[in-house]
C-alpha cells in the first residue's frame, strides 16, 4: 500500500511547499504516495489518518495548537518541514507574535530544515520518507565542509562589525578565500547545521543560519558563539541576529 501523506501549512510563506512541488522528483513522489490532505493542490475536507504528516510553518495562533495536536494524533509520523516548523522561522523577529516550532507542542519524528530546504537534500528526505526510513541530518556544523575554512588561528582576535558584506565588497566563492569572521563579517556557519551545500557562502554571503542549530536552541548557540568574539556596540543588541530564525520558548 502506498503511504498516505498529509501536507499541512501553518503560518508560513508557502516557500517550502512551492519548493516541494518544484522538486524534479515531485511527479514520481506523487505517484508513489497517496495524498490525503494537501490544500495547495487538493480539495480535502478534513485531516484524516495517514502514515506521514509533513507540516510547514510555525505556530503563531492559539487555534493552531489544537490543529497540530490533531495532526499528530492522526499521523504515524510527523515531520517538520522548513525552518519555520523546525525552529520558528522568520516570524521570530516579531516581538508581538509568537513563532513556535512544532516541537514546542508535539513530538516530532524528524525535521527537514532550511529556508527553503535545499532541493537535493529535500529530495533525499522524501525518498527516505516514502521508503519508511528516517531523515538523516548531518551532525556537524557548516564549518566542516566550508570552502572557506582555512587553518584555525587560536589567538586571532575577531571583531565583528557587519552582518553582511557591503554590496561592493561581495566576492564570489573563487574570489574570496578567507573566512568571513576574519573579515569582521558575522557568519553563523559555526552554529548552523551542515547540509545546504554552502550556497550563500559560495555566492559571497555569510551563512545566516537558516538550517538551524545542530544541538541546543538557536538563541543559546548565538549567545555562546558571540560571547567568544567581539561585537560592535550596534550589533550587540540587534535582534536581527539573535532571533533571525528562532527565539527562545520563554520569549513568547
Amino acid at each position: 500500500m502506498k503511504p498516505r501523506f498529509n501536507i499541512i501549512s501553518l503560518t508560513s510563506c508557502t516557500g517550502c511547499i512551492s519548493t516541494l512541488i518544484s522538486l524534479d522528483i515531485f511527479p514520481q513522489f506523487l505517484e508513489r504516495i497517496k495524498i490525503n490532505y494537501f490544500l495547495f493542490i487538493l480539495d480535502s475536507d478534513d485531516i484524516e489518518e495517514c502514515e506521514i504528516a509533513l507540516v510547514e510553518g510555525c505556530i503563531s495562533e492559539e487555534t493552531q495548537i489544537n490543529l497540530i495536536r490533531k495532526i499528530r494524533k492522526r499521523a504515524k509520523r510527523v515531520f517538520a518541514l522548513g525552518t519555520c516548523a523546525c525552529f520558528g522561522g522568520i516570524l521570530s523577529l516579531s516581538n508581538s507574535k509568537k513563532a513556535e516550532p512544532l516541537s514546542n507542542h508535539i513530538e516530532i519524528d524528524g525535521m527537514i530544515p532550511g529556508c527553503p530546504p535545499p532541493s537535493k537534500f529535500f529530495g533525499n528526505c522524501l525518498i527516505n520518507l516514502v521508503g519508511n526510513k528516517d531523515i538523516i541530518l548531518s551532525e556537524k556544523n557548516m564549518c566542516a565542509n566550508c570552502p572557506l575554512r582555512g587553518s584555525i588561528e587560536i589567538n586571532s582576535h575577531i571583531k565583528i562589525t557587519k552582518i553582511n558584506p557591503n554590496p561592493e565588497e561581495i566576492r564570489l566563492g573563487e574570489e574570496n578565500s578567507e573566512c568571513f569572521l576574519n573579515n569582521g563579517i558575522l557568519c553563523l556557519g559555526p552554529i548552523t547545521r551542515d547540509g545546504c551545500e554552502h550556497k550563500c557562502i559560495k555566492m559571497g554571503l555569510p551563512c545566516e543560519g537558516c538550517m538551524g542549530p545542530v544541538s541546543k536552541d538557536f538563541t543559546s548557540n548565538v549567545v555562546n558563539f558571540l560571547s567568544l568574539i567581539e561585537l560592535s556596540q550596534e550589533l550587540q543588541k540587534y535582534t536581527g541576529i539573535y532571533n533571525r530564525f528562532s527565539k527562545p520558548k520563554i520569549n513568547r
Binding site: C13, G15, S18, T19, S22, C115, P116, P118, S119, N164, P167, E168, I170, L172, G173, K199, C200, K202, M203, G204, L205
Partner: peptide
C-alpha cells in the same frame, strides 16, 4: 539565484552573478 526560493543572489545594488 542560488536556491529555489528566497534567492541568495538578490542583494541591494544588483544581483550577485555567478
Amino acid at each position: 539565484g542560488g536556491r529555489s526560493v528566497h534567492l541568495i543572489s538578490i542583494v541591494p545594488g544588483g544581483v550577485i552573478y555567478s
